[in-house]
Nucleic acid binder design. Structure first.
Lengths: 246, 246
DNA sequence: CGCCAAGTTGAGACCTTTCAAACGCTGTGG
DNA sequence: CCACAGCGTTTGAAAGGTCTCAACTTGGCG
């Protein structure tokens, strides 16, 4: 059931089958986030839960019971306004925590949707907080770095052109995948062009055009959702010459 | 020294002199954030610090010592990338915490600049964490709500037109000021048009044009940095008809 | 085999940006 | 006390980047 996805690999299997996976380098300092949590709870007998692609782990408004630590797979989280506008707030990989943003609320503040066959571990918040001395601290760290990550994307969206945003996304995904033991040069996008556009504040056609243009420049190879980074250095160079702000 | 600014009023002075102040309603649920922290530490003998407009409370990269609780005034926080791009991540009022985002780092991740005569109270993080049982929890709450607030703005920037973003900002500021006891109808913007544009991912001229147009519609009165909301309901109505996303 | 979702590409329209100029405050110095 | 410099704001006109709408292609699945 799980082996259909290349991103579902066991923790120690790093380097074993670095097929496709996906994430890119943000043009901003962004330290590794929840690694601390993962090691902290790995010995605990936690509830597992598996999801298929397109399955919701939880929805906004639903009563919050636990946090979830992604063990394998690929998620998106999205918020939506009363008038129906939707915004994808991030794509989440192994090691990321889901549900953190509603820590102080009775119900979840966002949707969490699996974009691939995935597996999560359920973290009973109250219980862990009381039994693990470091838990609270680690959680604060993860929250803080999530804020910095969001700020990085706000910066990117506010100051980069469409093509640069796409490049920033690819490099960020590449970096994140690299950190998980996957190949940083071959990305398998698990989201649609529309999802990507939503996240980057672009229309899906604009995303497509940006990818096509990057391919025409010889910087990447695009084959539907599989993307190969042919020239990471060249890609990074595109971020240097940014749109003037003043 | 402090009385020059209408936003500098003593805590219980709510309703006393609701002159100008400033903040608006985000088109997203956004609970009051750090009120808990304020009441938690109000009895403590904390170090105070006063700043003039344009003065930095701290800068990114500077060694982090404490958190700061805004007691009066108006701040902006901004991140910047290596290549010089800058992004204002938020405007902060009384009750907001500064420095939270770098909780897990040795140095600050953003700049904090006073935009008006301001006063902050210094919170020694380690000390409070060890002595106040609730401190850690409250901090996590503030962090989580900061994330939700950021998401709300990401949503706004990604899905609203220029004019709608300006309206969203005005309403959000109005709401925040109202919560602090200032008049929600008379806003004194403490930031430049360029700052506002930076925050909303717009050029300063676009901000100006949006304000002028809203005034032409009879929804607001603009006099330099003083803005009067003539028709809050009408303003809110502009947010209803949003740009289609699909 | 055919339907359907997702992706690609084109052409034109529109909104925002860019560049430029003028205006208004504010504070400084003569 | 007034002149002038400097910053911030406003407004105009043109350019340009995305968006919108539409058609077509591709691959997956019943």
């Amino acid at each position: 059931m799980l082996q259909s996805s290349s991103q579902v690999a066991d923790p120690p299997a790093i380097g074993a089958a670095p097929d496709f996976a996906g994430s890119a380098l943000l043009p901003c300092p962004r330290p590794v986030s929840a690694a601390g949590i993962e090691s902290l709870v790995q010995a605990l007998p936690l509830q597992h839960r598996r999801l298929r692609a397109k399955q919701y782990l939880f929805r906004a408004g639903q009563r919050r019971q636990s946090l979830f630590l992604i063990h394998a797979g690929f998620f998106k989280t999205c918020v939506l306004s009363e008038d129906g506008r939707e915004k994808i707030t991030g794509f989440r990989l192994r090691g990321d925590l889901l549900g953190l943003d509603s820590l102080d609320m009775a119900s979840y503040a966002c949707d969490a949707v699996a974009l691939d066959v995935s597996e999560v571990r359920e973290l009973p918040y109250q219980q862990l907080r009381d039994s693990l001395p470091d838990f609270q601290d680690r959680l604060a760290s993860v929250l803080a770095s999530e804020i910095r990550r969001d700020w990085g994307w706000m910066l990117a969206i506010g100051t980069l052109s469409a093509e640069q945003r796409v490049v920033a996304f690819l490099l960020d995904l590449s970096t994140r995948l690299d950190g998980l033991g996957f190949s940083p040069h071959r990305l398998m996008l698990r989201m649609t062009r529309a999802d990507l556009g939503n996240f980057l504040a672009l229309q899906l056609e604009t995303v497509t055009r940006a990818l096509s243009h990057l391919q025409a420049l010889g910087l990447i190879d695009v084959a539907r959702r599989e993307i190969r980074l042919c020239d990471p250095v060249g890609l990074r160079g595109l971020l240097g010459t940014s749109r003037t702000i003043h």
